[in-house]
Design a protein around this nucleic acid. Structure first.
Lengths: 149, 149
DNA sequence: CTTATTAGTTAAGTTTTGTTAACTATATCT
DNA sequence: AGATATAGTTAACAAAACTTAACTAATAAG
């Protein structure tokens, strides 16, 4: 196997393990909270960096305004999202997580981080440092490909 | 930031980029083929390593036998799966991809690999080698944590 | 000012995906 | 052989997640 093939293979192998773990964590989280994939998706977006409009959510999820409005409404009824009138433009709504919503999502995010910390415990400082440099390199290379698929 | 925190951060950063890319590729693939998440899931499992029973599919997806049977039937009607009687146990069915199914899934898998090869082009041989060692180490460490969450 | 656009909601109906329950056919156990 | 278990299918129905179309309210443009 050529070095590049080897590279390709280990990238895929690591991704397979990481994805498998993330997916099963995600699935368990959905079962525990009674939230659907779309629900978690929306709450995550509000958690990281916030977001204003109902339309924006629809656009990003590739669904109609109406569908987004209904899903958001469901989350409002569950007490996960607070929906208030935007004072700048009173047609629009400002969406943000409630205390309850934030706590639940935080719990999910923390659970995911914990596994990585666990991983670090199985690696000595030199190894951690080497992996850190390697992944930094990889991330930089990936960012370059974003505009050249 | 401590070396371990740095480690944790870059692992998450790389995962974020990789996942984002995988997800949008996956979504596009679903749109192009008209297949649902569950459909692709089943076809992928049959593609990698094959699988026999309808029940096994149900178990792995966390749905009932009946639901698995219906979804499989849908894929048979689409011409993606061939469903034959298992000669060893005539109650059971042997499921495998048809030519058409295999070609479609292969196309999806190839598209995903292509990006990684693209990535390699942005890295010189020394960098590739270093990343290969790092990810091998990381994968090994991850496998150790599987039985100790 | 009045017309058009934009943001969001609501109602009605469809599609997808799942469940439960009843059934067929084969295999296994005693 | 006869009772029981297993693999899968089918029918009837329920829930989730969409869509389209009609509607309200606020803003932007002529």
């Amino acid at each position: 196997m050529s070095p590049t093939e080897e590279f390709s293979k280990v990238v895929r192998e690591w991704a397979k393990i990481y994805m498998h773990r993330s997916m099963s964590d995600f699935k368990r989280f959905m079962e525990e909270t009674g939230l659907s994939f779309s629900h978690v998706n929306i709450l995550m977006r509000l958690f990281h960096g916030g977001m204003s409009g109902v339309s924006e959510i629809g656009e990003q999820m590739g669904i109609t305004n109406a569908a987004a409005s209904q899903t958001v409404d469901r989350l409002v009824q569950m007490g996960m999202i607070r929906r208030t009138e935007d004072p700048q433009d009173r047609r629009a709504k400002k969406l943000e997580l409630t205390q309850e919503g934030r706590v639940i999502i935080e719990k999910g995010v923390d659970a995911r981080s914990k596994w990585i910390e666990n991983l670090a415990d199985n690696l000595n400082p030199d190894q951690q440092e080497m992996i850190t440099s390697a992944l930094t390199l990889l991330t930089e290379a990936a960012l370059k490909t974003i505009n050249s698929p």
